[in-house]
């Protein structure tokens, strides 16, 4: 991986295009994330797309560069907190008197509003967990070759 990354790094076109593309990929990820509330999309797809941006960065430059941007510690935190946000919503709905993951109780005045709020929060959790997981997998595979 390192060898091929070095070669890619030397290729100017790849570098420039990657630099130009990455912000758009991330933006698209965010779009899919927040659109998921009332249209096609959602946390899972968004998480993958968002992670893809970082993976591209890691491929074009190097794993070390990527690790400087997103340290391993952050990836772990992302996975954990993503799951926690997801579960936290469930627990919150429990505490507010509904069933587990019953979003309707999140807003005591407007059930529909509560539903939206719940979905956004849950999707956020899923997105965070998934993108962090994708990165963790990438780190694991890419790091393995380097370790040798």
């Amino acid at each position: 991986m390192k060898f091929s990354a070095m070669r890619m790094r030397e290729k100017l076109i790849v570098r420039v295009i990657a630099r130009a593309l990455i912000p758009f990929i991330l933006l698209f990820g965010l779009y899919v994330q927040f659109h998921g509330d009332f249209g096609p999309g959602g946390g899972f797809q968004a998480g993958v797309i968002f992670a893809a941006g970082f993976v591209l960065y890691g491929l074009v430059f190097s794993l070390e560069d990527l690790k400087r941007v997103v340290p391993w510690r952050v990836v772990e935190l992302g996975v954990a907190s993503g799951l926690l946000i997801y579960g936290g919503v469930g627990v919150a709905s429990l505490l507010l008197g509904g069933n587990f993951l019953d979003y309707k109780v999140l807003d005591s005045h407007d059930a529909m509003h509560g539903l939206h709020l719940g979905i956004i929060l849950v999707e956020l959790g899923v997105g965070l967990a998934v993108s962090a997981s994708m990165l963790a997998i990438f780190y694991a595979f890419a790091g393995r070759r380097e370790a040798r």
């Binding site: 907190s81 993503g82 799951l83 627990v91 993951l101």
Partner: peptide, 19 residues
């Protein structure tokens, strides 16, 4: 709510371990 907590509890505890 015990049935929900039965799985939710360990599921949520896992990320807390990481933290």
């Amino acid at each position: 709510h015990l049935p929900a907590l039965q799985t939710a509890l360990p599921l949520l505890a896992a990320p807390v371990c990481v933290l």
